[in-house]
Amino acid sequence: MGDNNIIELEFDKTISALAGNDYGYGHYKKQIENKFDYNKRNIIIFPEQVKKVAISFVQGMFRDILKKIGKSEIERYVTIKSSSEKLTEKIISYIKF
């Protein structure tokens, strides 16, 4: 895998939880689709304010990416960074769920 491609996500500052399949998909369209590079390792950074993420949001956000990359390969293409290690692990497990 080549260089890193950093994608820093932004959300409404008042929100500390992310939920909803369509909301996740909407943010994929808005913030990820045009920036995601399948030739690089994509580092997707969730802002510090986000403390909780529901599976529906993650499944919506990665809906299109998972059409192109199998779940078993996702970690080769995507690295998640978030406000805590625990949350990062949770997001990854939800992508692979």
Binding site: D12, A17, A19, G20, D22, Y23, G26, K52
Partner: peptide
């Protein structure tokens, strides 16, 4: 509410 931040706010 279905597509926007409503569900996230509700979770909070």
């Amino acid at each position: 509410n279905r597509k926007g931040k409503f569900i996230s706010i509700t979770m909070d």
